[in-house]
C-alpha cells in the first residue's frame, strides 16, 4: 500500500528563469518564494517517487498521433528540449524516473479503462523542466512524466482529467509495496500563447479556479467546459493538469501558496499544495 503523500501545483513558464526582468520585481520575488515553499514541502514529504503532470507545447506530441494522456516508462528522461535550439537559461539534464511504478500504473490502467499512451524516450520541454529546475534541481526524487493534451483540440474533458486523477489515487493506494508517492501538476493559469490576446490575463477566472481548488470543490473544476477555458486564454486549458491533481486529492482542500497576474510574463501565475 503506497501513500499519496503530497500534491504540488505550479505555473511552469520559463520567464522565471530566463526573462525575470520582464515582470514586476516584487511579484517575481514572491513567485520565487512560492517555488521555495513548494521545494521545502517536497523535501519534507520526501516521496520515493512523483508523477509530474503537464501540458506539452507541441515539441513531441503532434497531430499525426496525439494521445489524450501519456506516461513515461524508462529509467530516466531528459530536457529541456528547447535548449537544443537556443539558450534557455537553465541546464539540460537527465532526470531519474521510476519504471516499476510507471509499469504498474500503465498495466493497471490498460486493464481498467485508463488507456495510457506509453513513451520510452522523452525529451521533455519547459512544462516539466522549469518546475523541476526550481523544485528539485539535483534530481533527488524520481519523476514519472505524465502528458495531458492541452495543445490541440479535441482534448480530454475536465471531467475525464478529474476521473483520471481519482483513478491515479486509487491505483497508487493499491500499489503492493510500501511507498510514498507525490504528484506535481504544472501549467496555467490563464494565459494565451501565439494568439492575438497574448498578454491578457483573466484574473477573475484564476481567482475562481484557485478558490474552488482550495475549497476542495473538484466537481466545479471538473465541470469547466472547453469554451470557458478558451475564453480565459488560448493556453488556459493547461489547467487540465491541475484538475488531474484535484481528482487525485478529491474532497481535500489545497493551500494557496501564490497567485499574481504577472504582466510581462503574460500569465496568471499560481502555486498550491495538498499536504
Amino acid at each position: 500500500m503506497a501513500e499519496l503523500c503530497l500534491g504540488l501545483a505550479t505555473s511552469h513558464l520559463a520567464h522565471i528563469v530566463n526573462a525575470r526582468d520582464a515582470g514586476d520585481s516584487a511579484k517575481v520575488a514572491a513567485f520565487d518564494a512560492g517555488y521555495a515553499r513548494l521545494a521545502a514541502a517536497l523535501r519534507e514529504a520526501a516521496p520515493d517517487a512523483c508523477l509530474i503532470v503537464s501540458a506539452e507545447h507541441v515539441n513531441k506530441f503532434f497531430i499525426d498521433n496525439m494521445p489524450a494522456f501519456c506516461m513515461g516508462l524508462f529509467e530516466s528522461f531528459s530536457g529541456p528540449v528547447e535548449s537544443k535550439a537556443r539558450d534557455v537559461g537553465y541546464p539540460w539534464r537527465e532526470v531519474p524516473s521510476d519504471p516499476g511504478l510507471a509499469r504498474y500504473l500503465i498495466e493497471r490502467g490498460l486493464d481498467e479503462g485508463v488507456d495510457w499512451a506509453v513513451s520510452e524516450f522523452w525529451e521533455v520541454d519547459h512544462g516539466m523542466m522549469v518546475p523541476l529546475h526550481k523544485l528539485d534541481p539535483e534530481g533527488r526524487v524520481p519523476m514519472i512524466p505524465v502528458f495531458v493534451n492541452c495543445a490541440s483540440a479535441p482534448m480530454p474533458s475536465t471531467r475525464r482529467c478529474f476521473a483520471v486523477g481519482r483513478w491515479l489515487a486509487e491505483a497508487i493506494a493499491d500499489w503492493p509495496g510500501s511507498r510514498r508517492v507525490g504528484i506535481v501538476a504544472t501549467g496555467g493559469l490563464s494565459h494565451s500563447v501565439g494568439t492575438l490576446d497574448q498578454g491578457r490575463i483573466d484574473v477573475a477566472f484564476d481567482e475562481w479556479f484557485l478558490d474552488r481548488l482550495c475549497a476542495g470543490d473538484g466537481e466545479a473544476l471538473a465541470g469547466l467546459g472547453d469554451a470557458e477555458m478558451m475564453e480565459a486564454g488560448s493556453s488556459t486549458g493547461e489547467v487540465r493538469s491541475w484538475i488531474v491533481l484535484a481528482g487525485a486529492f478529491a474532497g481535500r482542500r489545497a493551500e494557496r501558496v501564490f497567485y499574481a497576474p504577472i504582466e510581462g510574463f503574460d500569465t496568471g501565475c499560481a502555486q498550491a499544495v495538498y499536504r
Binding site: A19, H57, V58, I63, A151, S192, T195, Q198, G199, G264
Partner: peptide, 21 residues
C-alpha cells in the same frame, strides 16, 4: 495552425516573445 507552433515560428523569425500580439 496550432498557436504553440505559430509562437515558436514567431520567435524563430527573430521577434521578441512579448511582442506577438
Amino acid at each position: 495552425a496550432l498557436p504553440n507552433l505559430v509562437f515558436k515560428y514567431f520567435m524563430l523569425s527573430g521577434h521578441p516573445p512579448g511582442k506577438f500580439a
